[in-house]
């Protein structure tokens, strides 16, 4: 079965605002381990939350990876660069954060938003 990638290197993407149920994101700004977990929901993807709703740029394409909770579905996996100045007021325009993100969590964004 052929699988087609949605994005390529240098594409501009935005991280969708998603459900917290199966994503463990302990390090939110206030309480370090504020988790909303449904223990019956299967395996968890562990991910930071700070990139939610932020626009970034694809830097690398890794191939495919099975996706939680039940790993029955595969998705492409990307290295995405975000400007830390979009996340923190104390960061400069030269500070970036690179996070590896599932294709399912990404949507296309206009280049002007980067």
């Amino acid at each position: 079965m052929a699988q087609i990638r949605e994005f390529r290197v240098a594409d501009t993407v935005k991280v969708k605002k998603g459900s917290d149920i199966n994503v463990r994101r302990p390090y939110e700004n206030t309480k370090p381990y504020a988790t909303k977990l449904d223990s019956n929901a299967g395996d968890l993807k562990r991910s930071p939350k700070f990139h939610e709703g932020i626009v970034g740029q694809i830097k690398k394409v890794y191939g495919w990876i099975s996706i939680p909770p039940d790993h029955s579905k595969r998705t492409s996996y990307y290295q995405v660069a975000f400007n830390l100045s979009d996340i923190s007021e104390k960061a400069t325009s030269k500070d970036k954060v690179y996070v590896d993100v599932f294709e399912d969590w990404l949507e296309r964004a206009p280049r002007s938003e980067l």
Partner: peptide
């Protein structure tokens, strides 16, 4: 100030 900092927030996969 001109040096770019790339912080890699890594996970279990890579």
């Amino acid at each position: 100030d001109n040096t770019e900092i790339r912080v890699y927030d890594i996970d279990a996969d890579i």
